[in-house]
Amino acid sequence: MAWKRVCSTSEVARGRLAPFVVDGITVIVANFDDDGFSVFPPACPHMEEPLDQSGMCAGTVLTCSKHLYQWDMRTGEAAGPAENDRVLLRYESKVEGGEVLAHIESELVYEYEDDEDDDFEW
């Protein structure tokens, strides 16, 4: 098991999220409850928006402010009224001795749609 220290619980205030780099891998840590932390990749599953800038926490819901897509940070499932068929990938995490630990073996990445083929015709 590759449990790694990400940050101290005091580094992310309740209702906030912040980016950290662990062994060269950037992750976002969200503090959605007094003892509820979630650790996930830094890009929005939808269109790769940088969640350290566009992400907002409200209760257990993560909202990307670019297109108002939402996820439940406890499960990674879509949670909002904007259509959304993508789950939020998460690193397994736990809190021990005032530190947030995450199980990071390799970087979790989304596959985004490439620009569609250029089959444009005049």
Binding site: H46, M47, H67, P81, A82, E83, D115, E116, D118, F120
Partner: peptide, 10 residues
Amino acid sequence: MKGNCAHISR
């Protein structure tokens, strides 16, 4: 960049 619409909100 090819002019395709990639996102319509809701």
